[in-house]
Design a protein around this nucleic acid. Structure first.
Length: 526
RNA sequence: GGCCCCAUCGUCUAGUUAGGUCUAGGACAUCGGAUUUUCAUUCCGGUAACAGGGGUUCAAAUCCCCUUGGGGUCACCA
């Protein structure tokens, strides 16, 4: 039997990071078993712009490299893959249930149903459907229908039964049917509801394993009952725990983003994100893009491998050691029985650590392209394809080394891209190391002269020059290096100073030095 | 509230199915130390957990029960 799994998102306009993890598990299980992964769009209740709503979801899959064998854009033998276009299937299944008496038309007014529900709640009694419409004779039902009496179709729950499911992750779970109201499976106009459409589609698409989030566990007995009523072979189930927000056990949610913003666990991620997004023209305070969404990580400059690695280790482990896994390895080694049962909180720190690892593994060329793209978006370079620009950026990346965890980190080296008079100088440190010390400006004046005299403006000679300069002036290198750094990069610390000087070039270094000295002097004489 | 699910370091987890090899292992974070002109890296080391209570057993993180805590779900949403 070929394993067939599916992911069935509703087109919401964004891809949830937790949903992505569920999808990953589902994809992994299919691929691990050389099976098929199907994407189906649950749009029974949507009337919005499909491109806008579905685009980001497909983009997220493509970005992470999770392909689908059947679904939107690729089609397949069980299409269409949009529930809104599969009405005939649902109609047929509905007639079948109605004809066999396994479902019934319920003419009870919604208000009445609601009242009973509330009454039951008030009396602390379990609510089950009144089934008054079941008393109606066949003729009466027919008459009601022709009269246009509104109704819904409900599945007739076999109240004497128990539903036992053997979940791949949760083990044996039992539900008592006597406690279940008859669920509505179709509206008056015959349009199907989620539970019903899902069952019809899962059967028609020959899904063998339904791998989905834990919150669907309570839907499962209904779906099993529906499969039985329809005479389908019931698929196997695996209910994956949801992804919780950092430091809590609550399901991560787009709506709580403002709360996450102030959570200490999320701090680093938001700081990083804010910095990068504001550079590339995305309002970081807008909630259109947030760490709840897959797109956030792409925009900030995460690698698919980093995100994937973080996601797969959320609720799944291979053994007591393995942390780093490529997609290919995951595919080989994934198994459902090693998925944990409890909800796991997303850990931004660990995510960033995975990301750092995969960034360090990335070939230089790809690092270059990623950074070029970022710089271009921020307007810090004009032409991504310009050879000279590429060579410069490549050198900067090499300088940055492991400081570059995400592509957006390239902005922390913006001193190499901004115009001299736009260089921002860390004022607090500038005061401390340049303005306040008695001899600093004097030393810098001297140093400037020496620097302008040097012909071979490369790291090694520069280093030697600085060293002998310090010795000659009888100052500690620790006094002069930081001051110089502040003047030419604006920062108190950073990448190798001498290679930075080399890269910036003599002219630029001298200009910046002049500007900084001027600034320091004007500071001093207020 | 009903139903269902879950419970090991701050976090992600190994160990639970087949009780002993667990004085509970790893990773991230954190704190020291070494390296580094600075920062980052790297290396070395430290702190840190079986929710509580009862059983069963020679032996319990592991099995059973209760309590507590956390979560999900209770729609003519998906």
């Amino acid at each position: 039997m070929t394993v067939r799994t599916r992911f069935a998102p509703s087109p919401t306009g964004y891809m949830h990071i937790g949903g992505m993890r569920t999808a990953l598990f589902s994809w992994l299980w299919a691929r691990h078993n050389n099976g098929q992964f199907i994407l189906r769009i649950d749009d029974t209740d949507q009337q919005r712009n499909m491109d806008e709503a579905l685009g980001p979801i497909l983009d997220a899959f493509r970005w992470l490299g999770l392909d689908w064998d059947e679904g939107p854009e690729v089609g397949g033998p069980h299409g269409p893959y949009f529930q809104s276009q599969r009405r005939q299937l649902y109609d047929a299944a509905l007639s079948k249930l109605l004809d066999s008496g396994k479902a019934y038309r319920d003419f009870e007014a919604p208000a009445d149903t609601q009242t009973q529900r509330e009454a039951a709640e008030k009396e602390k009694r379990v609510y089950v459907s009144s089934r008054v419409s079941l008393q109606l004779s066949e003729d009466q039902v027919a008459k009601n229908v022709t009269d246009g009496q509104p109704f819904v179709v409900r599945l007739l729950i076999p109240r004497a039964d128990k539903v036992v499911l053997n979940d791949h992750i949760r083990g044996k779970v039992e539900f008592d049917c006597s406690l279940m109201p008859d669920p509505v499976i179709a509206r008056n106009d015959g349009s199907p509801l989620y539970n019903f459409a899902t069952v019809v589609d899962d059967a028609e698409m020959e899904i063998t394993h339904v791998i989905r989030a834990e919150e669907h566990l309570s839907n499962t007995p209904i779906q099993i009952l529906l499969h039985r009523a329809l005479g389908n072979k019931t698929p196997e189930w695996a209910h994956v725990p949801y992804v919780a927000s950092p430091g809590s056990k609550e399901k991560m949610s787009k709506r709580r983003i403002d709360k996450y913003r102030t959570s200490p666990q999320f701090q680093k991620l938001f700081e990083l994100g804010d910095l990068v997004l504001s550079r590339i023209g995305i309002d970081p305070k807008s909630n259109d893009l947030s760490p709840v969404m897959v797109a956030y990580y792409r925009e900030v400059g995460f690698l698919p491998a980093g995100v994937l690695n973080a996601l797969v280790r959320l609720g799944w482990s291979l053994d007591d050691q393995t942390e780093i896994l490529s997609l290919a390895e995951m595919k080989r080694k994934f198994s459902l029985d090693r998925v944990i049962k409890s909800a796991a909180g997303l850990d931004p720190d660990k995510m960033l650590s995975f990301q750092s690892h995969w960034m360090s593994e990335l070939p230089a060329k790809e690092k270059l392209y990623g950074c070029l793209h970022m710089l271009k978006r921020a307007g810090l370079i004009d032409d991504e394809d310009d050879k000279e620009t590429q060579a410069k950026v490549a050198s900067i990346i090499e300088l940055a080394a492991d400081r570059l965890r995400v592509f957006g980190d390239i902005f922390q080296l913006d001193e190499f891209f901004v115009a001299d008079d736009e260089l921002k100088i860390d004022d607090k440190n500038f005061q401390k190391r340049v303005v306040k010390p008695e001899n600093a400006v004097l030393l810098l004046h001297d140093l400037r002269r020496r620097l302008s005299d040097i012909d071979n403006f490369t790291a090694q000679p520069l280093h030697e020059l600085l060293q002998s300069f310090a010795a000659e002036k009888q100052v500690k290198v620790g006094d002069i290096f930081p001051a110089l750094r502040l003047c030419v990069t604006g920062k108190a610390q950073g990448v190798d100073l001498f290679r930075s000087l080399e890269l910036l070039g003599k002219a630029c270094v001298l200009r910046r030095l002049d500007r900084a000295i001027g600034l320091a002097e004007s500071h001093r004489v207020p």
